[in-house]
Computed example of a mutant assay.
Amino acid sequence: MAAQTQNFKSGTQSQLSRSIERVFDDAEVSCQINLSGRKLKDYPMIANKFDLADTEEIDLSKNRLSELPKDVCQYLWLEKINCYSNVIKNIPDDIIKLRVLIHLNL
């Protein structure tokens, strides 16, 4: 039974990883990243594998983030950031790089 539970957990983790990878893959085309409700404590490092420089919108709401991820501040075309329902305690100084940001929901 324990081995079966372990296989289920690793299978679920693998699906979640693939699912997040799919989000970033789609974001390369749509310019929108939606990671809402995924219980994230950190911004996925897998994002570095994708060309997300043209990202205009990101939804990180309903997670467990304690800070606005610095990686988000590299998306210079961001117009909208949703981070509500997190535990945000810190906003990086690099947020001033986001010159076209018009909506920040913490």
Score class of each variant (00 low, 15 high):
residue 1 M to Q: 05
residue 3 A to V: 03
residue 4 Q to M: 05
residue 6 Q to V: 08
residue 9 K to H: 05
residue 11 G to E: 04
residue 12 T to H: 04
residue 13 Q to V: 03
residue 14 S to A: 09
residue 14 S to T: 02
residue 15 Q to C: 01
residue 17 S to E: 13
residue 18 R to E: 09
residue 21 E to K: 10
residue 23 V to K: 12
residue 23 V to S: 03
residue 23 V to M: 07
residue 24 F to D: 09
residue 29 V to T: 06
residue 31 C to H: 15
residue 31 C to G: 02
residue 31 C to P: 01
residue 37 G to T: 06
residue 38 R to F: 06
residue 38 R to W: 06
residue 39 K to M: 11
residue 40 L to H: 11
residue 41 K to C: 14
residue 43 Y to S: 12
residue 43 Y to K: 13
residue 44 P to H: 08
residue 46 I to V: 15
residue 49 K to A: 07
residue 49 K to G: 01
residue 49 K to Y: 11
residue 49 K to P: 04
residue 54 D to K: 08
residue 54 D to E: 14
residue 56 E to D: 08
residue 56 E to C: 07
residue 56 E to R: 11
residue 57 E to S: 08
residue 57 E to Q: 08
residue 58 I to R: 05
residue 59 D to A: 04
residue 59 D to H: 06
residue 59 D to F: 11
residue 61 S to A: 15
residue 62 K to L: 11
residue 63 N to M: 11
residue 65 L to N: 04
residue 65 L to I: 02
residue 65 L to T: 04
residue 65 L to A: 05
residue 68 L to Y: 01
residue 69 P to G: 07
residue 71 D to F: 07
residue 72 V to R: 05
residue 73 C to E: 03
residue 74 Q to P: 00
residue 76 L to R: 08
residue 80 K to D: 08
residue 81 I to N: 01
residue 83 C to I: 15
residue 83 C to E: 07
residue 84 Y to P: 01
residue 86 N to C: 09
residue 87 V to T: 14
residue 90 N to R: 14
residue 92 P to T: 06
residue 93 D to Q: 12
residue 94 D to A: 12
residue 95 I to R: 04
residue 95 I to S: 02
residue 97 K to S: 13
residue 99 R to V: 06
residue 100 V to D: 00
residue 101 L to V: 04
residue 103 H to A: 09
residue 103 H to C: 07
residue 103 H to S: 14
residue 106 L to I: 13
